[in-house]
Lab assay of single mutants.
Amino acid sequence: AQASVVANQLIPINTYLTLVMMRSEVVTPVGIPAEDIPRLVSMQVNRAVPLGTTLMPDMVKGYA
């Protein structure tokens, strides 16, 4: 199964992502692939992302 990117903490709206904020986990539904974690660093979330939430492409500015 493919691992997705999951929030490792509460990520406030407009926060620039860093490695410590994200982890990879096999979840349903599938979100942003874990292999894209390096690409996500320094990208901004466009909403608050609670701890344990799967990151979806529409949550990250400029990802989709």
Results as ranks from 00 to 15, higher is better:
residue 55 L to I: 08
residue 22 M to A: 00
residue 36 D to Y: 08
residue 12 P to R: 07
residue 13 I to N: 09
residue 10 L to T: 12
residue 51 L to E: 09
residue 56 M to H: 09
residue 20 V to A: 12
residue 35 E to Y: 11
residue 20 V to R: 12
residue 40 L to K: 00
residue 59 M to H: 12
residue 6 V to K: 04
residue 61 K to R: 15
residue 58 D to R: 07
residue 7 A to K: 00
residue 11 I to W: 01
residue 56 M to D: 15
residue 18 T to V: 05
residue 10 L to W: 06
residue 51 L to N: 12
residue 62 G to R: 06
residue 16 Y to C: 04
residue 55 L to P: 00
residue 20 V to G: 15
residue 15 T to A: 10
residue 2 Q to V: 13
residue 33 P to K: 08
residue 36 D to A: 10
residue 6 V to H: 02
residue 32 I to V: 12
residue 42 S to E: 09
residue 38 P to H: 13
residue 64 A to L: 14
residue 5 V to A: 14
residue 54 T to A: 05
residue 29 P to S: 06
residue 53 T to Y: 06
residue 55 L to K: 00
residue 61 K to A: 12
residue 10 L to M: 13
residue 41 V to E: 05
residue 64 A to Q: 15
residue 52 G to H: 08
residue 37 I to N: 01
residue 51 L to P: 14
residue 38 P to L: 07
residue 39 R to G: 14
residue 53 T to P: 01
residue 28 T to A: 15
residue 62 G to T: 07
residue 27 V to T: 12
residue 50 P to W: 06
residue 40 L to D: 00
residue 10 L to I: 14
residue 15 T to I: 05
residue 45 V to Y: 01
residue 40 L to F: 02
residue 12 P to S: 11
residue 24 S to W: 11
residue 22 M to G: 00
residue 55 L to G: 01
residue 60 V to I: 14
residue 5 V to G: 02
residue 22 M to C: 03
residue 50 P to F: 07
residue 57 P to F: 06
residue 35 E to S: 09
residue 43 M to E: 06
residue 42 S to T: 11
residue 27 V to E: 02
residue 40 L to W: 01
residue 36 D to T: 10
residue 17 L to N: 00
residue 57 P to S: 11
residue 11 I to A: 01
residue 46 N to D: 11
residue 63 Y to H: 06
residue 18 T to I: 05
residue 36 D to K: 09
residue 1 A to I: 15
residue 60 V to K: 01
residue 42 S to D: 11
residue 15 T to Q: 14
residue 12 P to G: 09
residue 48 A to Q: 10
residue 63 Y to V: 06
residue 62 G to E: 07
residue 61 K to L: 10
residue 60 V to Y: 01
residue 57 P to E: 05
residue 63 Y to C: 03
residue 31 G to T: 02
residue 54 T to M: 07
residue 63 Y to S: 05
residue 37 I to R: 09
residue 57 P to M: 09
residue 34 A to N: 07
residue 21 M to L: 11
residue 62 G to Q: 14
residue 48 A to N: 10
residue 4 S to C: 03
residue 9 Q to H: 05
residue 48 A to E: 15
residue 39 R to T: 13
residue 29 P to N: 13
residue 47 R to C: 04
residue 34 A to G: 11
residue 14 N to G: 13
residue 19 L to E: 14
residue 32 I to D: 01
residue 50 P to Y: 06
residue 6 V to T: 09
residue 60 V to H: 01
residue 30 V to D: 10
residue 44 Q to F: 06
residue 36 D to V: 09
residue 10 L to R: 07
residue 37 I to C: 02
residue 23 R to P: 01
residue 43 M to V: 05
residue 45 V to S: 13
residue 41 V to H: 06
residue 29 P to W: 03
residue 2 Q to R: 12
residue 36 D to Q: 08
residue 8 N to G: 10
residue 49 V to H: 02
residue 55 L to C: 02
residue 19 L to C: 04
residue 50 P to R: 11
residue 10 L to K: 06
residue 44 Q to M: 13
residue 47 R to Y: 09
residue 1 A to S: 09
residue 15 T to F: 13
residue 38 P to R: 07
residue 26 V to A: 15
residue 49 V to D: 01
residue 33 P to E: 05
residue 5 V to F: 01
residue 51 L to H: 10
residue 22 M to L: 07
residue 2 Q to F: 14
residue 12 P to M: 09
residue 6 V to R: 04
residue 13 I to M: 08
residue 49 V to F: 02
residue 29 P to M: 04
residue 47 R to Q: 15
